[in-house]
């Protein structure tokens, strides 16, 4: 009889086991720090590994997801408990980091390594520092687009020959996508997106779907982070890239320590490491730009100072984001 009751017991038992498992995994001899990042795991994990190699008594537990997901999660944590559950964070959204700093949620730390970082990428008080900068380039499928026919600049993208060929990250759900929309609005105004809207672009959530769409040639032109393009090209996918003539959009990834973390000492060591030579070498090996002034950039690419960028006001972007999203939806509907 009572198979149902037995089922219940079984379920409870399994759940308890699950609970124990998740707890036992979190308790060990060494110090463990919680690391929230928006940088894809193939790039953030090697850094954490290198750090643990150099500091065997500190283990780094990573949570990695898209910009909007990570920020949404941190907001909820702060709302529920008054502080972040993350001890350290590495986030590609300067406006959010600045806001966290203004709210007093970040630990000010004068790392001895800070002096080696380009002044443009660090907070004078040491509350946050960008050890890495991603650049947005135009990526295209070499299967579908001849090198001569590829767009040369941002404004080329509005050319009618790219009708039905373009893909963008949906700014409604993607932080990177939103920054790109704002950057073009700041540079060209809304006519840029009105021109794009006429070409019926595909809007996907986040970079995942986008890269695959370009690689497969279904939507052969899109804009993408340099490290994603480098990764695809290294895997011999049929793609290539163009640095837009007006300049690329720079997206610094800021590292910061959450104020009130119980693991402050370990967090500081990680901070030092992220802007250290060791850290920069890992970044270079992975084809990413670092911000140290005393080391060259990744192999085969211009030094970071020579990459032409378009000016972009992140604070204005953060202020106007809700209005931008609404206008963007209307423009795309026309």
């Amino acid at each position: 009889m009572n198979v149902a009751i037995r089922g219940c017991f079984f379920a409870c038992g399994m759940s308890i086991l699950a609970g124990i498992w998740s707890m036992s995994a979190a308790s060990a001899e060494t110090t463990e720090i919680q690391f929230y990042t928006t940088v894809p795991r193939n790039l953030s994990e090697p850094l954490a590994q290198k750090f643990t190699e150099l500091n065997p008594d500190i283990k780094v537990n990573i949570f990695q997801a898209g910009v909007e997901t990570v920020l949404e999660k941190m907001r909820l944590e702060a709302r529920g408990t008054g502080r972040f559950q993350a001890d350290v964070m590495w986030i590609e959204e300067p406006a959010a980091i600045r806001q966290f700093a203004d709210e007093g949620r970040l630990e000010a730390y004068q790392s001895p390594e800070l002096k080696n970082v380009s002044a443009a990428y660090r907070d004078p008080e040491g509350r946050f520092v960008a050890n890495h900068v991603a650049f947005i380039f135009i990526m295209y499928s070499t299967k579908k687009i001849q090198p001569g026919a590829a767009p040369k600049s941002w404004s080329d993208l509005t050319d009618t020959k790219f009708a039905g060929q373009l893909v963008f990250s949906n700014p409604q759900v993607s932080g990177t996508g939103a920054a790109i929309v704002s950057a073009m609005v700041q540079k060209f105004g809304w006519p840029f997106w009105e021109g794009i809207a006429k070409l019926k672009p595909v809007l996907v959530n986040g970079s995942q779907g986008m890269t695959s769409l370009i690689i497969q040639g279904e939507r052969p032109v899109g804009v993408m982070q340099d490290y994603t393009i480098a990764d695809a090209m290294q895997k011999k996918q049929p793609v290539n890239f163009i640095v837009p003539e007006e300049g690329s959009l720079a997206m610094p990834a800021y590292f910061a320590i959450a104020r009130g973390t119980p693991k402050l000492e370990a967090a500081k060591k990680f901070y030092d490491f992220m802007i250290s030579k060791d850290g920069a070498e890992v970044l270079m090996r992975l084809g990413m730009y670092h911000t140290r002034t005393d080391l060259p950039g990744p192999e085969g690419r211009p030094p970071i100072a020579d990459v032409k960028t378009i000016p972009f006001d992140w604070a204005q972007h953060a202020r106007e984001k809700p209005a931008m999203k609404a206008t963007f939806a209307d423009v795309m509907d026309k």
């Binding site: 998740s22 795991r41 790039l43 949570f63």
Partner: peptide, 25 residues
């Protein structure tokens, strides 16, 4: 799963979707 995930309670679907953006399609 993605918004409830913290280190150690990630699920298969979470691993799958982060692999798309990070490791490879």
């Amino acid at each position: 799963s993605i918004i409830l995930a913290t280190p150690f309670n990630e699920t298969a679907a979470f691993a799958m979707i982060t692999a798309w953006g990070a490791v490879s399609f």
